[in-house]
Amino acid sequence: MRWEVVRGGLLACVIAWQLVESLPAIPTISPEMLRRPEAQLELSRWQAAFGQLGIEVQRQELVSLARGFGDAMHRVHRVFDPLDPVAELLGVGQGWGLFAQADDVPGRLEIEVFAAGGASEVVYRRLDPDRTWRAERWAYRRMRAAYDQDVGRVASVFRRFTEVVAATRFAEDPDAVRVVVRIVPTRTQVPGHELPAEGRVVEIGKDRPTP
């Protein structure tokens, strides 16, 4: 019976810890984040949604509400901060914000190769059956992580991804002198909704290193 009590107590502690970890962890909303078109569109949608319910809400009020909720969650999460080294060692956690926001301005990966004479060719474009150079490699989930996110936030890893792509191409194609990797934003129009604002193209070029 004594072991059962110890086990029950240990399980209670672990479950309490992990339940707190599972509470939403909302990132701090910065002014820069708010300036992004997708954030503005989401705020407009929420404003319209409240409007349909007859509640008039200002954008600033919505932002304050989200900030207040986020701060409260951060305070709860901090209770178990001393256990962070354990979580790190074991690699455990409970952040399950899976597709919490659907991205209606998704980026499409494209790789363009320039030859010495100036001619260029798009050798890879996501889901383009005619541009498939190393398609499986770039689509593999751990590689996709380097470019299929908020590229503004992950600029450094996107730069390193470009270097990997360029090095691969230079090794395979002696004529290639420059490789450009870009994320081309597209807009998904939901039937009956307004077209989202245009995103910006993010691209990085890499020249063949001189011997």
Binding site: A102, D103, P106, R108, L127, R144, T188, V190, H193
Partner: peptide, 19 residues
């Protein structure tokens, strides 16, 4: 887009995400 106010359009949008 997951909610009635967003016309439950989330899956439509996710399936158009190139990544």
């Amino acid at each position: 887009l997951w909610m009635p106010m967003g016309d439950f359009a989330a899956l439509y949008v996710i399936l158009h995400d190139w990544g």
